[in-house]
Amino acid sequence: MPKWAMAIDLDKCTGCGDCMAACKLENNVAIVDAEQAADDRVMLWMDMMTIYEGEYPNIKLKRIPKPCFHCDNPPCIKVCPVHATYKNEEGLVAQIYNRCIGCRYCMAACPYTAKVFNWYEPEWADEFKTCMNPDVSLRMKGVVEKCSFCAHRLQKVKENARADDREISDGEYSPACADSCPAEAIFFGDLENKESKVFKLSNSPRAFRELEDLGTIPKVFYLSEKE
């Protein structure tokens, strides 16, 4: 059984924000208006963290793209009263919108604030409704959503591979962010496949995970040279 994971090379990432836009477009993530944004209700499946280090003028600025980490031991699934969020066999932490009752316990439980809540009925101008991605269902007001590692792409890839009667090759399944990254900083693949790029990167001396001591075992690895 594959175990899907991501590696983000922070030495290569420029923080251009392309992954954020690619993600919003691919996953039909609703866009809030100015007033709602002022209330901090912007929904980003792929967020960007900014960290300043050092004393002026010797400042280092690091921008860190932050999707859902799809933890191997996810705290969010334990608190869900309705089994709307769970970890599947392939290690994807799923969010099933039609089960979600909007209690937001999972949001509180997630130490990485990866989940977002639909505070409003998603609104699009009529014209924009024509260009929604048909592979991803639209969410309604009152449910929690988050990065799915573009699970719908996995379904397509699985279909392709099985139709041709072959295994999924490394790099074939790739979320929108990894696919589009101009710095080629995001890698995606199967952690169980010892030949995969992600497996190799996860074992790199540069690899680390966010808040590792919490025991959540994130499946998103960051790579950064310790300077």
Binding site: G17, K24, L25
Partner: peptide, 8 residues
């Protein structure tokens, strides 16, 4: 194959 946010 790269893009910037605005392209999307």
């Amino acid at each position: 194959g790269g893009m910037c946010p605005s392209g999307h």
